[in-house]
Write a protein that binds this DNA or RNA. Structure first.
Lengths: 152, 152
DNA sequence: TATTGTTATACTCTATAACTATA
DNA sequence: TATAGTTATAGAGTATAACAATA
């Protein structure tokens, strides 16, 4: 009887090592061509934001776990490259609203497609059982990531 | 009959998004306190190297997919902090051998323990089925990471 | 001449501290 | 006074180009 709620230290280490390798893999799989991880991450947030409820600069900083000055710079880089733009908040003139541009959306889509294609190639190299196991674990991994992101 | 060897584009996208979230999670779970991701990655390579077959600086650069100058700097930082040291190669005086120090090994162990503990806490918050699914997928994920790292 | 590594320079990304503008 | 954001400055991590030393 295997009780995974009682994993030993060595199991955690195994898990840690496996996930760290996956993280390294992602750094390499993602061509990262035109878009750094930090930029892509913010751009994805902006892309998912409802038009009626856009992000403030401070909210982006909190969401990404970086400081306000760091986000100021990141947004400035995105703006300089035409991927996002700063807008005024009519209700509070201190506030900076950040929106993704069409160009930003296009770049994001290209990047996602490229990543998916690269991962598809890698997955195709695995055996059937491995693909099944990974697919079966995806929802669980998403929940795990959610818990780490602030869900808890 | 589900044939995962014929995953559609949307499945790849789902997979990409899930793994990217895991990568973000790892950035946050790892206290990263004293050790950056880049430093930790190199230090782990050095730690796993057989004493009789240590790494050259160039080999580290190739293994980590960074340039020689980048690795020169990274090793210099590790050396400055006492975590690694440069050694001469008796057979070829152009070569720089890099070894981990005792201090480096100690730090690595602390970091691994902290990460494992943090992940353990997160895992404890998942339901039994999710934990089982993730554990079942670990070997497959490792093979996937290996394929991306250069195994292919 | 080819290989190994370093130095010089520049850019991204991050942080802390000090500042401005608005509430 | 508190909040939203920027500017100033510094350090890690990365790249390319030019260089030195050794093979």
């Amino acid at each position: 009887m295997v009780d995974t709620s009682d994993l030993g230290e060595s199991e955690y280490l195994k898990f840690t090592v496996a996930l760290e390798r996956v993280a390294v893999m992602l750094r390499r799989v993602g061509p990262a061509r035109d878009l750094s991880l930090a930029s892509a991450s913010v751009l994805q947030l902006l892309d998912q934001a409802p038009v009626a409820r856009p992000y403030r600069l401070t909210e982006l900083a909190v969401e990404q776990c970086v400081t306000q000055p760091a986000m100021t710079q990141l947004v400035s880089r995105l703006e300089r490259e035409g991927l996002a733009r700063r807008c005024a908040d009519p209700g509070d003139r201190r506030v900076v609203i950040v929106r993704i541009t069409q160009e930003g959306q296009d770049l994001l889509r290209e990047r996602r497609d490229a990543r998916a294609a690269a991962l598809g190639t890698l997955l195709a190299g695995l055996c059937e059982d491995d693909r099944r196991a990974i697919e079966a674990a995806l929802p669980a991994l998403e929940r795990l990531a959610l818990a780490a992101s602030g869900g808890v």
